[in-house]
Design a protein around this nucleic acid. Structure first.
Lengths: 226, 226
DNA sequence: GTCTATAACCGGATAGAC
DNA sequence: GTCTATCCGGTTATAGAC
């Protein structure tokens, strides 16, 4: 069998078992067995169990980008564009909510390559941030200095919403939806106010701090938190 | 030997080994050996390795409260008081930096009792929030509506700083210190500006959202993220 | 019934033969 | 690239000491 098929077969078995039994019960041995492959062989293709989870992330990430589309819902203001992206995000990850806690556990381990702040996740993070850059680019009424920091800030905001979503056990995660819609509203308003440069010194200080943080990261990234 | 001493000895050994070798290398067998106790005995007192982490968590929390003291450094303005609390926090956790990543791994697992948003952590979270309430209480120039939300917000802020710290590999975590000091400065300024109620509607909307989120939590907490 | 110790068990990960 | 055999460490079962 072609190596590519073997790898796909293992991944398929893993995703099946994750869905059927959850993360803990889906042992590497069971995955290998389901894929009719030896344990060692499974490890030949996937360095660790975590690498199998990465498939989930990559998939939902790709799905989100596709769902967002090229025109971002054709909206022209920040509120509409951000709302579109966030809605698509929540819709994309919704089917995985019951597994999310386990799947995202490794994501929050700073030593894990799955961590969104890690070197390995940088490509995905960059792509995700690019989506928010597109959100911002389509809007006129944003001051230049703010425009520069906004994509990163929005990405961070979206991570916060996802974190809330993970913990949200309300029916259909309606609380997350409510929070998301109200906070998107707020963000649009705050950006509007801030863009009129009404609060000179404080605003400048905030932007300077954000700029410095990004500069530090360029060298040897500790993270983007806060 | 009295049981209490045995338990303390095991915890002591565990913390030592966590500090010396980090979490992975500090095996339960090594911990038991260091404590001159059998493996089974260690498990008699601590149901799992996670329980040892919980003990660590409780201890640093208590240390922080003690370090903060009753007068919060005798400062009278928000900047000084918050700075004092945050400095004590970073000083308290500093010795455990290399093992902190693991602490946070389980802490961010929504199914883990260690999760700061979990039911089990509620007492600690409440105590920690109380510290920030004391920070706020000692300051005069804060508007009433803001004063109500601030303790929770500051707790959340402090979690963000800790998250940054965990990822921060700079010498002595100087980046975290810099970020902390600058952001404390900013928070004090923002609170000052916001307390003069200059930005009516936006400010009211933000506070209303925060109030609603807290109200939701009262019933069946999904989390306090963002 | 409270504590301690030893010997498994289980699953993630690795080594090395083919 | 695929296998088998093995390691390693968290966890559990269980036997016994006080």
């Amino acid at each position: 069998m072609a190596p590519r098929d073997t790898k796909a077969k293992i991944l398929e078995a893993a995703l099946e078992l994750f869905r059927e039994r959850g993360y803990e019960a889906a042992t590497m041995r069971a995955i290998a067995k389901r894929a009719r492959v030896s344990l060692g062989n499974a490890y030949y293709y996937f360095g660790s169990k975590e690498h199998l989870i990465q498939a989930f992330y990559d998939r939902t990430h790709a799905e989100h980008i596709a769902a967002v589309g090229l025109e971002l819902g054709a909206s022209k203001d920040l509120r509409g564009r951000l709302l579109w992206v966030m809605r698509k995000k929540l819709e994309t990850i919704q089917p995985y909510h019951q597994f999310a806690s386990v799947l995202f556990r490794s994501a929050s381990d700073p030593t894990s390559p799955l961590n969104p702040f890690s070197r390995e996740s940088e490509p995905v993070r960059r792509e995700a941030t690019a989506v928010f850059a597109r959100v911002v680019d389509g809007v006129h009424a944003i001051s230049k200095d703010l425009r520069e920091e906004l994509p990163n800030l929005l990405w961070l905001y979206h991570m916060g919403i996802v974190l809330y979503w993970i913990h949200d056990e309300s029916e259909g995660q309606w609380r997350t939806w409510k929070l998301m819609e109200r906070s998107v509203d707020l963000i649009a308003k705050v950006v509007a106010v801030a863009s009129m440069s009404g609060l000179g010194p404080v605003r400048r200080k905030i932007l300077a701090l954000l700029r410095d943080l990004r500069a530090d990261e360029e060298h040897e990234a500790p993270g983007t938190a806060q």
